[in-house]
Amino acid sequence: MPRIPDVTLANPRAARVKQVRALSGRPARSQHGQFLVEGPQGVREAVRCAPSAVRDLYLTEAAAQRYREIYEAALEAGLFVHVGTPEVLAAMSPDAQGVLAVVRAVRPTLAEALGSLAEGRRRPLLVAVLATVRDPGNAGTVIRAADAAGADLVVLAGESVDVHNPKVVRSTAGSLFHLPVVSGVPLAEVVRAVRASGCSVLAADGAGDHDLDELLDVAGAAGRPAAVPDLAASTAWVFGNEARGLDEADRELADAVVRVPIRGAAESLNLATAATVCLYASSRAQR
C-alpha cells in the first residue's frame, strides 16, 4: 500500500495556490482551459472516469488517509498528486473538503457528441437541453438527474451558465464525467441537430397541450394517435429559464409542448424537479 507522502505545500499565499484559486473565476478558466473539481465525490469520478483530463490532484494528509481509494487510483493513473496543509487547501477552495483537482476542460461539439452516440446504437436517444438556464445549482442538478435517468447527452444552449462554474461542477456530484455535456450552441441549432439524429423535440412547459401522464399511458402503443408524441422513441427534452420558462419562439421550435401534472396546491415545480420528472418518464417508457 503506497505511503502517504509528507506535506509539500504549506504556504497558502504561494503562487500555485493563487493560480488554482483563480480557476473559480471564468476569466482564468477560459485563459487556461482548466477548471476546479471540489470535494471527494467529484474528484473520485474525475479520477475514475476522466484521468487523462486531470492535471493535478491536491489533498490534505487527513483527506489522503480518509479517501485512500482516490489517492491510490490517482497514483495508479500516473497523475500529479500534491499533499498540502488544511490552510493551503482552504485557500485554494473553501468548498474542497480537503480534496481538489484541476481538470482540463474538454468541450465536445454538438456534432461530435451526436456522431459518437450514433455509432452502433440499438436503443432510443434521450437528450436534455437547457435553454438559457442561468442558475448553476439548477444546471448541475439537471446534469446529475439526466445521468441518473440514463440520458445520453446534456446540452446547455444559448446563454446558459458556464458548465465549468464551480457550483455547477459540485452540483453534478461527479455526473459531469459520466456523459457528454455540450454548451454554447443556439437553441435553434440544437433542435435541428437532435431532430436530424432522430429525436422528437418536447418542450416542458406548464401550459403544454399534452399531459405527461397521458403520454406515459400510450407510450409505445400501436394505437397511439400520430399527433401524440411517443415517449418510447428517441426524445430531446427542452427545459427553459428558471424565472421565465420558455418563450413562445422557443416553444414553437418543439414538436410538442408537454406539461407535468400538478395535483396538489403547488403553483408549479422548479426547473430541476420538473426536468427530473420528464427525464424519468422518458427513461421508463424507453425501457
Score class of each variant (00 low, 15 high):
Gly140Phe: 00
Thr8Cys: 13
Val238Trp: 03
Thr172Phe: 01
Val181His: 00
Leu89Tyr: 03
Val168Tyr: 02
Gly223Gln: 07
Thr141Met: 09
Ser171Asn: 10
His82Asp: 09
Pro94Cys: 11
Val201Pro: 12
Ala64Arg: 01
Ser30Thr: 14
Pro166His: 05
Gln34Trp: 04
Arg16Trp: 09
Arg259Asn: 12
Gly223Thr: 07
Arg195Ile: 04
Val83Ala: 03
Ala101Gly: 05
Ser282Tyr: 02
Pro51Tyr: 06
Arg263Ile: 10
Leu57Gln: 01
Glu72Asn: 09
Val81Leu: 06
Val99Ile: 06
Ala221His: 14
Glu45Ile: 07
Ala146Ser: 13
Arg66Met: 13
Val37Leu: 04
Leu89Ile: 14
Val169Asn: 07
Val99Cys: 06
Leu279Ser: 09
Gly98Leu: 02
Ala226Ser: 13
Ser183Asn: 04
Leu271Val: 03
Val7Trp: 00
Gln97Ala: 13
Leu179Arg: 06
Ala146Thr: 12
Arg123Tyr: 15
Ala63Ile: 06
Pro5Ala: 05
Leu202Glu: 05
Val37Asp: 04
Leu130Thr: 00
Val258Cys: 05
Arg195Val: 03
Arg29Thr: 03
Leu215Gln: 00
Val43Phe: 01
Asp205Ser: 15
Leu36Phe: 01
Ala207Tyr: 15
Ala113Pro: 03
Gly39Leu: 07
Leu79Lys: 05
Leu212Met: 14
Val83Arg: 04
Ala274Val: 07
Glu72Cys: 09
Gly150Ala: 04
Leu279Glu: 07
Asp56Ser: 09
